[in-house]
């Protein structure tokens, strides 16, 4: 959740098993809209960027419907905390904790994310 000035060579990265995994250029993230990323082990992550430029990453799978679509939900703020609403049946998930706001017993995975100048080693 790093604030970074917008420059074209900034990369969005996810922390996986202690290493930063590069996903895409920061410019691919439209504020208020998500994109999905595929991890090497087949997991899917939904990445978001808010109006301030803060980045968030949660699991892409909607635990209620089963489809991998959370990246296509609408985002917003609820009581000062960012959330995404599933495009399937509209349940909302806190983007920082992964907690479902409409069903206490459900939580989705979250990931550490940053925008950084990618180093060559990581890009290869």
């Amino acid at each position: 959740m790093t604030l970074a000035p917008e420059t074209t060579d900034l990369k969005v990265q996810l922390l996986l098993d202690g290493d930063w995994f590069t996903v895409c250029d920061l410019t691919r993230l439209v504020p208020g809209r998500g994109v999905a990323a595929l991890l090497p082990d087949g997991r899917q992550v939904a990445l978001f960027r808010d109006r301030e430029g803060t980045l968030y990453a949660v699991g892409n799978r909607d635990p209620f419907g089963g489809a991998a679509v959370l990246s296509r939900g609408l985002t917003g703020t609820h009581r000062g905390r960012p959330f995404v609403a599933s495009p399937l049946l509209k349940q909302r998930f806190d983007l920082l904790s992964g907690q479902c706001l409409d069903d206490e017993s459900v939580r989705i995975p979250t990931y550490d994310i940053r925008a950084a100048q990618a180093v060559a080693a990581e890009l290869s």
């Binding site: 109006r51 917003g76 703020t77 609820h78």
Partner: peptide, 13 residues
């Protein structure tokens, strides 16, 4: 409290 924020899934559409 909502000014300057990200809105929500109701008002955006």
């Amino acid at each position: 409290g909502a000014r300057g924020g990200d809105g929500c899934e109701v008002c955006k559409p």
